[in-house]
């Protein structure tokens, strides 16, 4: 099956406007599964180009405290993989925003990886990123994703060797998620300068759009990253707002955050 091309088109549109695509992470099911579609639409109204929909997991080893706690709240609210797919389908009924499922491997394995790919595509998901699935172990899952027309998004890290970047480039489609620094997810005051070099190393290997994430929380970070990359990913800053906002103003606050990040008036 062919890819939906939603992700590629969104990067092209942002490029045509001379700005980086804004990719926004949202843990599905926090504060409760019923609310997530409405929060996702608020992010889009504020200027989010691509939605990363997080599947909550009990043991998120790559995440800092903010997203760990968001996952805990989502699980306590009864969020399952099946429920996340329903949420994706609901968002798709109401919007054309590209949706990337962002997950740890185990919940997807338990669901059945190939079955997950089929159901995700039906729900309107465009791509999948599995945090703890390295390219070495990805042959079979990547084939399932490809067969179901889903983009395969892998991470590139500051520690990645040239050999590993070659593999990442070979396996990826849609875009490559460039991890800005060693460490777990979480907001920082500055973006690690060394990521520019990593972006350059990847450019030499792939024509795919490159999106930088980890530690990005402000408009100035998005602007800075936009000078050398094609997109910026914001996660913990979003989930912090979900955690700290009064229930009645959640959508308003999230839309406001994305307006600020995207520079959209």
């Amino acid at each position: 099956m062919e890819s939906s091309e939603r992700i590629a088109r969104r990067f092209e549109a942002a490029r045509a406007e001379g700005r980086p695509a804004l990719i926004v992470y949202l843990t599905a099911g926090d504060p409760c599964p019923e609310r997530t579609p409405s929060l996702a639409l608020a992010l889009e109204r504020g200027g989010a180009d691509i939605l990363e929909l997080g599947v909550p997991f009990s043991d998120p080893i790559a995440d800092g405290p903010v997203i760990q706690q968001a996952s805990d709240r989502a699980l306590k609210a009864g969020t399952t993989v099946e429920r996340v797919l329903e949420i994706a389908a609901e968002i798709r009924r109401r919007s054309e925003i590209p949706i990337v499922l962002f997950s740890y491997l185990n919940p997807l394995l338990r669901y059945g990886f190939d079955r997950l790919c089929g159901d995700a595509r039906t729900a309107g998901v465009d791509g999948v990123l599995v945090t703890d699935l390295s390219v070495e172990e990805a042959e079979e899952p990547a084939e399932s994703l490809r067969r179901h027309g889903l983009d395969r998004i892998f991470l590139a890290a500051p520690t990645s060797t040239d050999r590993r970047l070659d593999l990442v480039a070979r396996y990826s489609s849609g875009f490559v998620y460039v991890v800005s620094r060693t460490g777990v997810t979480g907001a920082r005051d500055t973006v690690n300068r060394a990521v520019e070099d990593l972006v350059r190393r990847l450019r030499a290997r792939t024509p795919l759009p490159l999106a930088v994430g980890f530690g990005i929380s402000r408009r100035e970070h998005v602007e800075e990253v936009g000078r050398y990359a094609d997109g910026a990913v914001v996660g913990s800053a979003v989930m912090r707002v979900v955690d700290e906002s009064a229930d009645g103003v959640l959508e308003e606050r999230l839309e406001g955050l994305c307006r600020e990040l995207s520079g959209k008036r």
């Binding site: 390295s134 070495e136 991470l155 590139a156 520690t159 991890v179 060693t182």
Partner: peptide
Amino acid sequence: GGRFVPETLMAPLE
């Protein structure tokens, strides 16, 4: 077995 970790840890494991 295998090696199921975020990319940042792959090179250190190697």
